[in-house]
């Protein structure tokens, strides 16, 4: 029963880049049908975690299973089959710049199905309607604002009706209105389509307002996890510092360095 409720299971994940340990034994469980938010200070490799789940990167050690499949050892064909069931929203949308909004959303459908143009049109308009951009179908990506581009990318991510969507920093650099729109969209899509959502973010307020479960990462490890209330009321120093936005605490204000006085040669 418990097995079935967990969609993504990460165990003892280790990953290093350019000689620096980014993950040093991370364990995560992402529940089906829930919105799981992964938070942490910048530079803790939250985006890297999403790439590892999508197997765009290979971990040094540990296991990642998605819907019962071990992605770290999956062959090319099986991996691509699995990816069809995953959507990912990149930080700035990553729309294909030479295609219009309509064609961008139609792209995965055209690539993976042989549906008629008529049917594709219907599907694309439905997806665009869901993100409120049906009227922008003929614009080119360069003509969109950042928030609109993300919404188009979201429409594209749900084009093939995936089982899960990973959001990479969906709120960064958004004005309050489009931030509100995105927050609502993520919640609504998750509930309406029965998706599983993984949101990577450091915008505490927005993220915790939609989160069903939160993981706090720091220093390559999970330092705290639980529901929003759990974390807010937790007595873990990490959670307190991060949730309240204190400048100094377990996450030091200073980047690792030699003592100040030594550096100044005093």
């Amino acid at each position: 029963m418990d097995e079935n409720k967990t969609l993504v299971k990460v165990r003892d994940l280790k990953f290093a880049r350019a000689g620096r340990m980014i993950f040093d034994g991370v364990d995560l469980d992402i529940q089906r049908g829930k919105i799981t938010v992964i938070m942490g200070p910048s530079g803790t490799g939250k985006t890297t975690l999403l790439r590892l789940i999508g197997r765009q990167l290979k971990p040094m050690q540990g296991s990642i299973s998605v819907d019962g499949e071990e992605v770290t050892t999956l062959g090319h064909r099986r991996l691509y089959e699995l990816r069809k069931r995953m959507g990912m929203l990149f930080q700035n949308g990553a729309l294909l710049t030479d295609l219009s909004v309509f064609e961008n959303v139609a792209y995965p459908i055209r690539e993976h199905t042989n549906l008629s143009d008529e049917l594709i049109r219907t599907l694309v308009l439905m997806k665009l309607q869901a993100v409120g951009l049906r009227g922008a179908r003929d614009l080119m990506p360069a003509e969109l604002s950042g928030g609109m581009a993300r919404r188009v990318a979201l429409a594209r991510a749900i084009a093939l009706d995936p089982m899960m969507i990973m959001y990479d920093e969906p709120f960064t650099g958004q004005d309050p209105i489009s931030m509100g729109v995105l927050v609502r969209l993520i919640r609504n899509l998750n509930d309406a389509l029965g998706l599983t959502s993984v949101v990577v973010s450091h915008d505490i307020e927005e993220a915790s307002s939609i989160a069903d479960y939160i993981y706090l990462l720091s220093g390559g490890k999970v330092v705290a996890h639980g529901t929003t209330e759990d974390l807010a009321n937790s007595d873990s120093e990490w959670a307190q510092q991060f949730m309240k936005g204190k400048p100094d605490g377990p996450v030091p204000f200073h980047f690792q360095s030699q003592p100040y006085t030594d550096d100044l040669n005093i």
Binding site: G54, Q56, Y80, R83, K84, N92, A94, L95, L96
Partner: peptide, 10 residues
């Protein structure tokens, strides 16, 4: 990230 996005679209 268009290439990455393609990869994730399988």
């Amino acid at each position: 990230e268009q290439l990455s996005a393609m990869e994730m679209m399988a």
